[in-house]
Design a binder for these strands. Structure first.
Lengths: 143, 143
DNA sequence: AGCTATAATTAGAATAATTCCAAATATAAT
DNA sequence: ATTATATTTGGAATTATTCTAATTATAGCT
């Protein structure tokens, strides 16, 4: 698995900007998140990472995911008490979790809608983030 | 702590409807959630529950919270990897989490806004729930 | 290129929240 | 009252994640 030059550039800049170093492990993990965007858990990332980098440890996977989240190149996605999942989609979006198939799908959100969501906050409240999670049945799981 | 008659009625009906039995512990825990609506964790509920019911166990607290969530009289609230919190507010609302004070505030949501959120789903997707969580600084925590 | 300070990786231990288990008890229907 | 079944209980087990301390890698400097 190879990280395309423009993404390598993006990663190196982002790491530098957040005061962190570039490492093979971080690059590898970023590459595999980009390559298969199925919102894997840390454990799943670990399994995939070991294919090409057998000596990587689970602790490093956690460290790298944390480092990447710090750069804002990826984000953490949580559904109730389930293990955290990781998503390299940089656009503004929510997540739809299909309880049937377990699939997680990105749902694009317009600035207008996000703006409306900000406007319903009580006076004096300012939100840095909004997390929106749907759960139900996806396209494939309807009768 | 006493559960007001109308809430006791509500609880008993809801439990029966979901095929569960009425117990002192469930009643007690429902009462204390209603009495102080500060989105406590299971551990916090446990501490409060023991004041009036010293023999209650943590496992029972979890069981009761689960049972109440099943009736839909309370709901679980999750913020990232933090412990689950419990909320007896039955209206449609989101949660605002102030990272500074740790306070969690309910934010009412109009049917119209929820409707718009449903409309942005891809064709063929139907959501049973939407969870919306803000995080930032609350009224008291601004400079 | 080599040296050095500091950051990152590693394996394994530790932790925190939650769930499981099996015995004792309580509930509700007869 | 009796009985079937659900619930409670305390402790053990589990799961995801974080911590720790030793080793290794990175990047800036000469």
């Amino acid at each position: 698995m190879q990280l395309e030059p423009q993404y390598k550039e993006l990663l190196n800049n982002a790491l530098e900007l957040s005061g962190q170093r570039a490492t093979k492990q971080r690059e590898h993990i970023y590459a595999l998140l980009l390559q298969k965007r199925n919102h894997p858990t840390a454990e799943e990332v670990y399994v995939r990472a070991k294919e090409d980098m057998p000596t990587i440890s689970l602790a490093t996977v956690y460290n790298c995911l944390e480092a990447l989240a710090e750069t804002k190149l990826i984000r953490q996605v949580n559904f109730e008490r389930e293990p955290t999942r990781y998503c390299p989609n940089l656009t503004k979006h929510a997540h739809f979790y299909c309880r049937e198939s377990g699939e997680i799908v990105d749902v694009d959100l317009s600035d207008k809608l996000l703006d409306e969501l900000m406007k319903v906050l009580p006076a004096g409240f300012t939100a840095k983030h909004i997390e929106i999670s749907y759960d139900g049945a996806c396209n494939d799981c309807h009768d």
